[in-house]
Design a protein around this nucleic acid. Structure first.
Length: 403
DNA sequence: ATAGGGCTAGCC
DNA sequence: GGCTAGCCCTAT
């Protein structure tokens, strides 16, 4: 799981009051550590959670109001949390009210604070994807925005699966969870059984040390030595989580295309999924290639006729004189400037030592092949490097290491 | 998104 | 001319 994913999930869990503290801490233990300092909402959620916890009376032990108040004051005075409590919340706790009244007052204020906590990024994304505004969001989104929505859809379904355990469901409410999953999984829900965790498979070795071993049994590298035993289970679980989500993601996309069906043909730009295919199709004329580039989720094959398409006919003869000039004009798109075939190559840029070291560190940490995660983990170092650059560079380094 | 083959600028 | 690092292209 990437730090970004972990943040999305933690942000959602921490700010959800329905999730009991015991459940929250259990789930927290299975997440990679996330710095709460990146998000005011997350910090506020954690602060409210701490205060909630201090004010809640556990079933087994009876606690008197003074004790509760003392605990609450301790939380409110915690230097890590204090900045995230509003002034008026801290005030009654230090007043000389009767403890019971102060506790009751605090609880009321706490209710208000919980209610005013903004929705998490995950919930916002979910609403945009599967909520009532989904269609509206899509219709109003430009190309870049749609790409983001697609990414969010996948991220959201991944997150759901990663925490789709009976524990989490009991916390957020079974009906809600099932409803969301149902929406995400339709129409082929049968391929993904909610609550059934994917089986662990034997993922191929992904660490570079083993890669070297395959090529040269004696090769040993101190530079890229992955703690394979410790890392592999995590990688495997990540991998099969991704695998298990695949079905949901596809369904999600299918679902999107189904909803898009309602506006297909009625307005411009209803073939959002096809936009991505266009540049490639322009370069590749083989029918097989065109078929391969049908974008997942698009119901109509590119080989099928598009009812909204215009056609230009050319009879192949050069007898231009027989036709009016207007008819002889080439379709507009053929007259537009094509990008130069010798498109500007990126200027060759030598990899710095720091970049190399960071790349090796990234591979050690996230595993070979997780170039996107590595790039995201060191955005400043790899600012001018693409994931493909990372992959190429590592391949290059590997050659040296394995030589 | 990633893997792997291919191309080529730049160095010797 | 050969080699290689860095980059591109294509398939999956």
């Amino acid at each position: 799981m990437t730090p970004a994913d972990a943040f999305l999930i933690l942000d959602f869990l921490a700010g959800n009051r329905l999730i009991p503290h015991s459940v929250f801490t259990t789930l927290l233990a299975s997440l990679p550590s996330v710095s709460p300092h990146t998000s005011p909402r997350l910090r506020a959620g954690l602060a409210l959670r701490a205060l909630d916890s201090a004010l809640s009376i556990s079933e087994s032990s009876e606690m008197d109001a003074p004790t509760l108040l003392r605990k609450a004051r301790a939380v409110l005075a915690d230097p890590d949390l204090a900045p995230f409590f509003p002034q008026h919340l801290a005030a009654p706790a230090s007043a000389d009210d009767a403890p019971a009244a102060a506790v009751a007052h605090l609880n009321r204020l706490l209710d208000v604070e919980w209610a005013s906590l903004p929705p998490s990024s995950l919930e916002i994304a979910a609403e945009r994807i599967v909520g009532s505004q989904a269609l509206h969001s899509w219709a109003n989104a430009d190309h870049a925005q749609r790409s983001k929505l697609r990414l969010l859809a996948e991220k959201y379904s991944t997150s759901l699966y990663q925490f789709y355990s009976p524990l989490a469901v009991s916390a957020v409410g079974e009906s809600t969870a099932l409803e969301i999953l149902d929406t995400l999984q339709r129409p082929d829900a049968s391929t993904n059984h909610p609550g059934t965790l994917p089986q662990v498979d034997n993922a191929p070795e992904t660490n570079s040390a083993s890669h070297c071993a395959q090529q040269n049994d004696g090769a040993k590298s101190g530079l890229v030595k992955q703690n394979a035993e410790a890392d592999r289970p995590q990688q495997d679980s990540t991998r099969h989580q991704q695998d298990s989500v695949q079905g949901a993601s596809n369904s999600q996309l299918k679902e999107s295309s189904v909803t898009m069906e309602s506006i297909r043909g009625t307005g411009p730009d209803i073939t959002g999924f096809m936009e991505e295919a266009t540049p490639r199709v322009a370069r590749q004329f083989a029918p097989d290639n065109i078929k391969n580039h049908q974008v997942t989720g698009s119901k109509r094959s590119l080989m099928e006729r598009n009812p909204t398409a215009s056609t230009y006919e050319w009879d192949g003869s050069d007898s231009e004189g027989k036709r009016p000039a207007a008819k002889r004009r080439l379709p507009i798109f053929e007259r537009t400037a094509k990008p130069s075939p010798t498109a500007a190559h990126k200027t060759r840029k030598k990899w710095s030592e720091k970049q190399e070291k960071t790349l090796l560190e990234g591979v050690e940490k996230y595993g070979k092949g997780n170039w996107k995660d590595i790039k995201m983990a060191y955005p400043d170092v790899f600012e001018d490097r693409s994931t493909v650059d990372l992959k190429d560079k590592f391949r290059n380094l590997e050659r040296h290491l394995c030589a």
